[in-house]
Design a protein around this nucleic acid. Sequence first.
DNA 1: GAAACCGGTTTCCGATAGGATACCTTTTCT
DNA 2: AGAAAAGGTATCCTATCGGAAACCGGTTTC
Lengths: 128, 128
Amino acid sequence: MEKDTTIAEEVLCKSRILAIKDTSDILCGKWKIFILGTLLVTGKMRFMELLHTIDGIGKKMLSKELHDLELNGLIHRTEIKTKPITVEYQLSKQGKTLSKLIEEMITWGSQYRKDLLNLHEKKMNTEI
Amino acid sequence: MEKDTTIAEEVLCKSRILAIKDTSDILCGKWKIFILGTLLVTGKMRFMELLHTIDGIGKKMLSKELHDLELNGLIHRTEIKTKPITVEYQLSKQGKTLSKLIEEMITWGSQYRKDLLNLHEKKMNTEI
DNA sequence: GAAACCGGTTTCCGATAGGATACCTTTTCT
DNA sequence: AGAAAAGGTATCCTATCGGAAACCGGTTTC
């Protein structure tokens, strides 16, 4: 009886770890999460717009990360036959499911920063 | 009037991007999220337990990542004066606030894998 | 004809992340 | 005496990550 539950727990645990691994594999690298976040708030963007909006990224990295994200089905790439050609990127249906995760990262990051500041203030007060 | 809103929006946007950056900086690397996830489900663990539980990690990495996490206030390290000495690691109050984010990663990763399988099945069916 | 714009790709190079291995200290077991 | 176990460090090495810069093809404007 007890052995059953531990085995069941272990299987559950492994699948949870696998899920974490999947997620972090897909969001790995320095830029993907920012690209996704940017597309999430703007809806649609062109290559050059992304390049200028995402602070510090270079053409090579942007191009590579967009490829990865497209391969993993998180964004759509649309060529528009203007002259010169323009290309639009947007989140896919699958990509949009990341919004909760991204929002949670924003929430957590903001709170963490706030907590740090509070800690710092308190420390300053006790020092005076 | 319109300019005000765009400026306000831009400030908001920057702070959201900063929050994402904070979060991903703190969770960066190949192992931190697994260490946190493991501590989240088990409560408390010793160095060697973590080493054996987290598949594939080595001593050096475990040690380094634990240091980082402690520096950022996400975990507590407790030396217990047994012989030989044992050390317990556990999530701090701050660290526990990551549970929602980790749960969301698990949820998303599981769903993503499910969707992939469905896609694959459908494809197989149309191919027959 | 030159330059500029879009959306990239290619090449080169340096930094760093991360893995394997050996080593260290203290104490207990055999 | 020798080994083993806990919790690490130190050293070395390499694969990958990611940045800078040049280049490319098509088109349009000056």
